[in-house]
Computed example of a mutant assay.
Amino acid sequence: MANDNFFKITELFPVGICVIDSTNRIAFWNRLISEWTGKTSDEVSGKILCEVFPHLSGSSFEERIKEIFTGAPPAIFSSQLHGAIIPTYLPSGEPRIQTTTVLPLRIEDEIYAVIVVEDCTELKREVTAYRRMKDSAILALNDKINAEKEVVRANEESNLYLGIMSHDLKNTNAIIMSYALKMAEFDNQEVVNYAKKIMMASTGINDIIRNVSVVRKMSHESQGLRPFPLKMVIKDAARNFEGLKYEIIGDDVRIFCDDLISELFVNIFSNCVNHAGIASKIHIIIGDKNDKGYVRVSVADEGPGISEERKADIFAKFTKKVREESGDEGTGLYIVKVLMTRYNGNVSIEDAYPDAIRKGLKICLDFKTA
């Protein structure tokens, strides 16, 4: 056969190659197709293709190969759709998944049909594995979506129940407070003392209801931070405490926060009142803006202060230690910590008067300024 050197080069190709002449006799049979079919070049060379592979006799494959010699365009066949022109096998004996291309080749005055067999078995396996992985991912995604929908539904249901309970508890607590106020007008000092204790407990219940509502709101994503005038926020929060004494030192500044900012200061003021009493004074200092665009706001009370041991736990969530040592439920300053994180700020505590005889607690808030 002419151009033998050209066909010897095809021994390096990663495909099986069979070349037949116009009489359908095999003129070339490369090394790879020998391995895949188990038929050597010596066995098949010079033989008619249909004699080597009888299933081709009278088939559409035979007709299509004949058309190649009359100038027809190349033809491509998939073993999965059309079957195999030249069946090839894996070492395990399993048929290879293959694509076969039949194309014309003119050498000098002769036309040959070149049959190129490409092994697609590994590609098919990878595609199958990918599809399985994709199907698994889709199932997992659907499960996640359904789970998220269930969480949303459960949250909506729990929020409804919490809203109903909060409303009913507020109404009941208001009745308790009204009776306690009446009792406080009695001439009997023992009754008056009990009335004061009832009022303190009632106030604590209101704080718990309020904090539960705030925690519920915090579970929702913030609608975005925007500038608020700091002094206005502080004064709005102070209005929740009748007779609260406080002073603000420093220039006003606009801070980035959201609608829950008032609750942050309400909880700080509540902590001050619980530990220092409503008659004591709260000292608020607004510092200067630093070079990173933050301002420090310190809120100091005149209470008994806090031990070094408790400082590490003061912002903890509902801990037994906080309840036992502070007498409250431990939600207030936890809410402050969460909200400051929400505002991309920071909160810390210090002794209000570290070098003085009197004690007190100072809560330091670092806000991003507008």
Score class of each variant (00 low, 15 high):
132 R>H: 15
132 R>N: 13
132 R>F: 07
133 M>A: 11
133 M>F: 13
133 M>L: 12
134 K>A: 12
134 K>D: 11
134 K>Y: 06
134 K>E: 10
134 K>W: 10
134 K>C: 11
134 K>M: 11
135 D>F: 06
135 D>A: 04
135 D>T: 06
136 S>V: 08
136 S>G: 12
136 S>M: 12
136 S>T: 15
136 S>D: 07
136 S>H: 07
136 S>I: 09
137 A>E: 03
137 A>M: 13
137 A>Y: 09
137 A>L: 09
137 A>N: 04
137 A>D: 07
138 I>A: 15
138 I>D: 13
138 I>V: 15
139 L>G: 02
139 L>W: 09
139 L>R: 11
139 L>K: 09
140 A>P: 00
140 A>Y: 04
140 A>E: 12
141 L>R: 03
141 L>M: 08
142 N>A: 08
142 N>G: 09
142 N>D: 09
142 N>L: 11
143 D>L: 04
143 D>K: 14
143 D>A: 07
144 K>M: 15
144 K>N: 08
144 K>I: 07
145 I>P: 00
145 I>C: 00
145 I>L: 13
145 I>K: 05
146 N>F: 06
146 N>Q: 14
146 N>V: 03
146 N>A: 05
147 A>T: 06
147 A>E: 10
147 A>V: 00
147 A>F: 03
148 E>Y: 05
148 E>T: 04
148 E>C: 01
148 E>H: 05
149 K>P: 00
149 K>N: 08
149 K>E: 06
149 K>A: 07
150 E>W: 07
150 E>P: 00
151 V>W: 02
151 V>K: 05
152 V>M: 12
152 V>D: 13
152 V>E: 15
153 R>W: 01
153 R>G: 03
153 R>S: 02
153 R>F: 04
153 R>D: 05
153 R>H: 04
154 A>T: 05
154 A>F: 01
154 A>W: 01
155 N>G: 03
155 N>T: 05
156 E>C: 01
156 E>P: 00
157 E>Y: 15
157 E>F: 13
157 E>I: 02
158 S>N: 14
158 S>C: 09
159 N>F: 01
159 N>T: 00
159 N>L: 02
159 N>W: 00
159 N>D: 14
160 L>F: 10
160 L>S: 12
161 Y>I: 14
161 Y>V: 05
161 Y>D: 12
161 Y>W: 08
162 L>K: 03
162 L>R: 03
163 G>C: 11
163 G>I: 14
164 I>W: 05
165 M>A: 14
165 M>C: 13
166 S>Y: 02
167 H>D: 15
167 H>S: 07
168 D>C: 11
168 D>P: 02
168 D>Y: 13
169 L>H: 05
170 K>H: 15
170 K>D: 06
170 K>C: 09
170 K>M: 11
171 N>R: 13
172 T>F: 15
173 N>G: 05
173 N>P: 12
173 N>D: 06
173 N>W: 01
